[in-house]
Design a protein around this nucleic acid. Structure first.
Length: 441
DNA sequence: GTCTGCGGGCTTG
DNA sequence: CAAGCCCGCAGAC
């Protein structure tokens, strides 16, 4: 088991207990670590993890929470504190209860500037909800490199919804730039109803969504409490399912011509990189031509082992899980490689290698994972969207919540497809991409 | 321009 | 003294 913190006490031997009993401030940290943890994108509560020093995400001390560096006057231990989440002060909601959960800028100046901007949905003022999950203070994360391992410890429980991920925020900035660039092109290509800016939309946010954050269609109460995030077996399963979807989507496009194939992870990964016969949508598989949805989001339980060959390479690699997924943000960004946009998600080594066989972003709390796709519509050009700003998934982060996630109906888990892809048709999207959304060509 | 890590310095309990 | 916070700097992207 990767997550030592969730092992049952009775299953632990003395070494395992040592793995659990350490504190980030200890003089000596355990070095006889048998198994390192999979990187946790949304660490919450009082978690401790031991990552391999080879783990790129751990090396970068990444978190999808907006964490800023905090000086603890200890150069050996890096401390970071949570900035919370930026929300609309009007508490506006988009369709299906989607809320605005923006990622606070890490830089102080940038954050102040950010709060002067307007809500992308209702144009109302934005406000920052500070994190007070650690005794009234922000949740803190500690990182310490020691030997072959990177030790992580978090203190406190986030008492606010999750912001958009770093990658989403980065992508949004990228799209904002693209928007500005495209605005200078004399082609009047943004007049289609789907791409027109709505009155409430501020230009500063841009109108080109890049990723969708279908964390959940359920609005969190103001008393949202991260404590509800539990490490249930189902959630762990989901985490590991996410690994598969991420692995398949690395590089953006996915070729899962036959989801029931018995390709091993490496070959599967290679196929993923080669074509776009199938669009991996954070777990759901779409065929861009037929528009067929392999609706794993509807809990169709195609067992990942069937496709991955029963963990043939590494026990840590591809656990046995069904394939439920609820998110499917994607990236229509053919002009820019996924590696450029989302370097963190690109494995340095082939998946067959031990280090890269671990998931890049497992989901500890069973959270939805924001997946990006590089959809190559016949090598179409620049990225954009066919969504109205109101639908702009980029701007809306669902309040993520594992409990809600597991009570999702098929509707909520695939609404994006039903309403935006299947209803409109991917060919339509492709055409839109070509006709309306490639102003630079 | 923003993120990130580092470190000095201040305040508070 | 520890913890939290602010600030500026430098390097990277």
């Amino acid at each position: 088991m990767a997550d030592l913190t969730v092992m049952a006490p009775e299953d632990l031997d003395s070494e395992d207990k040592e793995m659990l009993s350490w504190d980030i401030n200890d003089m000596k940290l355990p070095q006889n670590v048998k198994k390192t943890d999979w990187f946790q994108e949304w660490p919450d509560s009082y978690e401790k993890h031991i990552y391999s020093s080879e783990d790129r995400n751990a090396q970068r001390h990444l978190s999808s929470w907006a964490m800023r560096n905090t000086n603890n006057h200890n150069s050996r231990i890096l401390k970071k504190s949570c900035l919370g989440v930026v929300v609309c002060s009007r508490d506006c909601s988009a369709e299906e209860g989607r809320k605005i959960y923006l990622r606070p800028a890490i830089c102080d100046k940038a954050r102040q500037k950010q709060q002067r901007k307007r809500c992308p949905n209702c144009d109302g003022p934005l406000k920052l909800i500070p994190c007070r999950g650690h005794g009234g203070f922000p949740v803190t994360n500690f990182w310490r490199h020691d030997g072959r391992f990177i030790f992580f410890q978090s203190k406190g429980e986030h008492d606010h919804p999750k912001p958009e991920t770093k990658l989403e925020a980065e992508a949004r900035r990228t799209m904002k730039k693209a928007h500005v660039a495209s605005a200078s092109v004399p082609l009047k290509l943004k007049e289609s109803p789907e791409t027109k800016s709505l009155p409430g939309e501020t230009q500063s946010w841009g109108s080109f969504p890049l990723t969708w954050s279908f964390q959940e269609g359920v609005q969190l109460p103001s008393s949202y409490n991260g404590r509800l995030i539990a490490n249930t077996p189902q959630q762990k399963s989901l985490n590991d399912c996410l690994f598969f979807s991420k692995s398949c989507c690395l590089g953006g496009t996915t070729d899962l011509a036959d989801p029931t194939s018995t390709l091993g992870p490496t070959k599967l990964y290679d196929k993923c990189k080669l074509s776009s016969s199938w669009i991996c949508n954070g777990g759901d598989l779409l065929h861009p031509v037929s528009g067929v949805l392999s609706d794993y989001g509807d809990r169709q339980t195609w067992n990942i082992n069937t496709a991955l060959g029963r963990q043939s390479l590494n026990d840590n690699c591809c656990p046995s899980y069904p394939f439920p997924l609820t998110s499917w943000p994607y990236d229509f960004s053919p002009s820019q490689s996924s590696a450029e946009l989302f370097p963190q998600q690109i494995p340095v080594e082939p998946p067959a290698a031990e280090s890269s066989c671990r998931p890049l972003w497992p989901n500890p709390g069973g959270e939805l994972y924001e997946e990006r796709l590089h959809v190559d519509f016949n090598s179409c050009c620049p990225s954009s969207t066919c969504h109205s700003p109101q639908e702009d998934p980029f701007l809306f982060a669902y309040a993520s919540h594992p409990h809600h996630q597991y009570s999702l109906t098929g509707k909520s888990s695939k609404w994006d497809f039903d309403e935006d892809m299947r209803g409109v048709g991917l060919d339509h999207y492709s055409n839109e991409m070509l006709l309306n959304l490639c102003p630079l060509r």
